[in-house]
């Protein structure tokens, strides 16, 4: 038996011997570090400090209005947002808040003959996406008093968005008589000069703890006039109402650290 194999069996044998006689540890705790953490309680009113939360928003365009000449495919509409929000109590009933974030808004557009965005081509599917950086301000009324987001609350506010990227995705089925084989073709058109770079929303939401539901209404027109499309006329607007489901998270210890420092 060569030396390496000998050592291998020796190690395996030693490990197995130890395992066969070792006790089974069910519980092992160290107490020394329990109270060494630098922390303080969640301030229920959090007065005089900004309370930081992270919020993920999921939602869609609400089919509560006609959209001019565009026929919207609502299953193809989607809204996603990620906000970093800060709230500061103004009293027992109200807080002031602001936030920065990212949001993606996708409109699914159902194709019809003679529609505007397709240059007379009937696509199987078409979606218009805007990627935006929102800045929002809101006033929060605490239904459950003296809470940050621990109890019931409702917010109303304003959100301004800078659409830094726009993307029109058109999908068509390949015609085997023209193309080779059957398949799909996606056409990506970006940096659209007929989509407004700025958007403003009114925001209303009601929440409890980590969850909230809300609606956003766009005050501004989605499009702007461009000589490159629709003979320089303003395109018909897209639906303005968006419904959201929000999930909010916060780090209690970090948020309360400031309180401790003030003590």
């Amino acid at each position: 038996m060569s030396a390496p194999i000998k050592y291998f069996f020796l190690i395996v044998f030693s490990v197995l011997t130890l395992m066969s006689t070792a006790q089974k540890v069910l519980l092992h705790r160290k107490s020394a570090a329990l109270f060494q953490r630098n922390e303080t309680a969640q301030s229920m009113s959090n007065a005089g400090s900004w309370f930081y939360t992270r919020t993920t928003l999921l939602g869609s365009v609400l089919p509560i209005e006609q959209s001019g000449d565009f026929d919207i495919a609502y299953p193809g509409c989607f809204f996603f947002g990620n906000d970093h929000r800060f709230t500061r109590p103004l009293g027992r009933h109200f807080s002031l808040g602001w936030g920065l974030g990212f949001q993606l808004l996708t409109y699914g557009i159902k194709q019809q003959s003679g529609n505007i965005l397709s240059n007379q081509v009937i696509y199987k599917r078409q979606s218009l996406n805007t990627y935006a950086l929102p800045l929002d301000f809101f006033v929060r009324q605490h239904i459950t008093q003296k809470s940050n987001t621990l109890g019931w609350y409702w917010d109303f506010g304003w959100k301004g968005c800078w659409n830094f990227y726009q993307l029109l995705i058109s999908q068509e089925e390949l015609d085997p008589s023209i193309h080779q084989g059957v398949g799909r073709r996606h056409i990506y058109n970006s940096r659209l000069d007929y989509v407004s770079r700025w958007a403003q929303f009114g925001v209303l939401r009601i929440g409890k703890g980590h969850m909230a539901v809300g609606v956003m209404h766009r005050f501004t027109h989605f499009f702007k006039s461009s000589s490159s499309i629709y003979s320089g006329q303003l395109l018909p607007d897209l639906p303005r109402w968006i419904g959201t489901l929000e999930f909010t998270f916060w780090n209690r210890n970090k948020s309360a650290k400031k309180d401790e420092d003030e003590l």
């Binding site: 070792a22 540890v25 092992h28 705790r29 107490s31």
Partner: peptide, 17 residues
């Protein structure tokens, strides 16, 4: 006299740890 560390184990063989 403060407990800084504690265990609960099931002995196997004669080994209590």
């Amino acid at each position: 006299g403060r407990i800084v560390e504690y265990w609960t184990v099931v002995p196997e063989g004669k080994m209590g740890g």
